[in-house]
Simulated assay, not measured.
Amino acid sequence: MEDLRQRLTQPSVESKQEASGKVISYLAITLIGGLVATILIFLTWKGIALFTGNHYSLWEFLSGIKWRPSDHVFGALPMIATSFSVTLLSGIIALPLALVVAIAITEILPSTAYKFLQPTIELLVGIPSVVYGYVGLTVIVPFLRRFFGGTGFGILAATCVLFLMILPTMTSMTIDSFRAVPKQYRNASAGLGATRWQTISRVIIPSAKSGILTAMVFGMARAFGEALAVQMVIGNTTVMPTGLMHSAATLTSVLTTGIGNTVMGTISNNALWSLALILLVMSLAFNLLMRLVSRKGVK
């Protein structure tokens, strides 16, 4: 009788597995959280060294228009303006096309088209950025040089490359948003006598609005942080952008070209870390914006 009581009261195999699973999960969460916190602390510490250690003016850094590391002049405004310019232009161009493609795949074309096109789009999402940069260098830049003159390098070339990069991502996310709209909405709209276009424009798109905005923000976040592809076609001139065909430089292109040419701890190296801190802040801002848009859509 006592043996039976011990068997009934002792922990089962399932409870032991659940306890070990919780321990592993908590350890994984702690490890990931520690890594993220370490990265944030390290980038913040290195990013503010220019202002705390070298006593460089924060206002001059953010508002200055000249970037001359040899003269210890660090004005980040041209790179910030160029980064936002190419990001906004590529996002504005890519969003309408992503909407059109997503509408065609989910609402107009037969289901067999979705089975063929969706894997193709996802394949384009996974193409390395250097491939897009090489396409821009060998196709887009010569095309722009032939029809618009100049060198072909500049903001317009970078915008075209980023547009090609983020279009598959935005299209895939928009397709998922449209497919998440309940079928009952379409049936109810058809039952009220609405045409296909009326159903798309007045029912499906408004219902998937939060997903569409999330796709746009996600695509722009990827465009803002892209380095290699942009560096290959933008010209890498640290001046204020004055035209689409003029060479310029983004935050990422300056970082990738300059980080290997500076000595750790010098004022030039600290200035690059400050640019990296700006990139980190903007990435966090994009992530926060995506969460706000998604939360608004859920409500």
Rank of each mutant, 00 (worst) to 15 (best):
Leu58Ile: 13
Phe61His: 05
Ile29Leu: 15
Thr52Leu: 10
Lys66Asp: 07
Thr52Cys: 06
Asp71Met: 04
Trp67Cys: 01
Leu35Lys: 07
Tyr56Arg: 15
Ile24Asp: 08
Val23Phe: 04
Leu50Phe: 05
Ile32Ser: 07
Ala49Ile: 03
Gly33Ala: 06
Ile39Gly: 13
Trp59Cys: 00
Thr30Leu: 13
Ser63Val: 04
Asn54Leu: 02
Trp67Gln: 07
Ile29Phe: 14
Pro69Thr: 06
Ile29Asp: 04
Tyr26Ile: 11
Gly21Thr: 09
Trp67Ile: 02
Leu40Thr: 13
Gly21Phe: 07
Leu31Ser: 09
Phe51Arg: 06
Ser70Pro: 00
Ile32Asn: 01
Ile65Phe: 07
Ile32Val: 11
Arg68Thr: 05
Tyr26Cys: 09
Phe74Lys: 04
Leu50Ser: 09
Ile39Asn: 01
His55Arg: 15
Ile65His: 02
Trp67Phe: 03
Leu43Ala: 10
Leu35Arg: 01
Ile29Trp: 13
Leu35Gln: 05
Gly53Asn: 15
Leu43Asn: 09
Trp45Phe: 07
Gly75Met: 03
Ile32Phe: 08
Ser63Leu: 13
Gly64Gln: 00
Trp59Leu: 06
Gly53Phe: 02
Leu31Gln: 02
Pro69Ile: 03
Val73Gly: 02
Phe74His: 09
Asn54Glu: 15
Gly64Ile: 03
Thr52Tyr: 13
Phe61Trp: 01
Ile32Lys: 00
Gly47Cys: 03
Val23Tyr: 05
Ser70Ile: 08
Ile48Thr: 09
Ser63Phe: 12
Ala28Asp: 01
Phe51Ile: 04
Leu50Asp: 11
Thr52Phe: 05
Thr44Leu: 08
Asn54Phe: 06
Val36Asn: 05
Arg68Gln: 09
Val73His: 02
Ile41Lys: 06
Thr44Ala: 08
Thr44Tyr: 13
His55Cys: 09
Asn54Val: 00
Thr52Lys: 11
Thr38Phe: 02
Ile32Leu: 12
Ile24Ser: 13
Leu50Arg: 10
Val23Ser: 07
Gly47Thr: 01
Val36Trp: 07
Thr44Asp: 05
Ile41Ser: 14
Ala28Ile: 12
Thr44Met: 12
Gly34Cys: 10
Thr52Trp: 10
Gly75Gln: 04
Ser20Ile: 09
Leu35Phe: 06
Ser25Tyr: 01
Tyr56Met: 13
Gly64Met: 02
Leu31Trp: 01
Glu60Asn: 13
Leu35Ser: 12
Ala37Gln: 12
Ala37Phe: 12
Val23Ile: 14
Lys46Met: 10
Leu35Thr: 11
Gly34Leu: 00
Ala37Lys: 14
His72Ala: 08
Pro69Ser: 08
Gly34Ala: 06
Thr38Pro: 00
Thr38Glu: 02
Asp71Ile: 02
Ala49Asn: 14
Ile29His: 07
Trp67Ala: 04
Thr44Trp: 08
Val73Tyr: 02
Asp71Arg: 01
Leu58Ser: 10
Ala49Glu: 15
Ser70Phe: 08
Phe74Arg: 07
Leu27His: 05
Asp71Tyr: 00
Thr38Tyr: 00
Trp45Glu: 09
Tyr26Gly: 11
Gly64Trp: 01
Asp71His: 11
Ser63Arg: 05
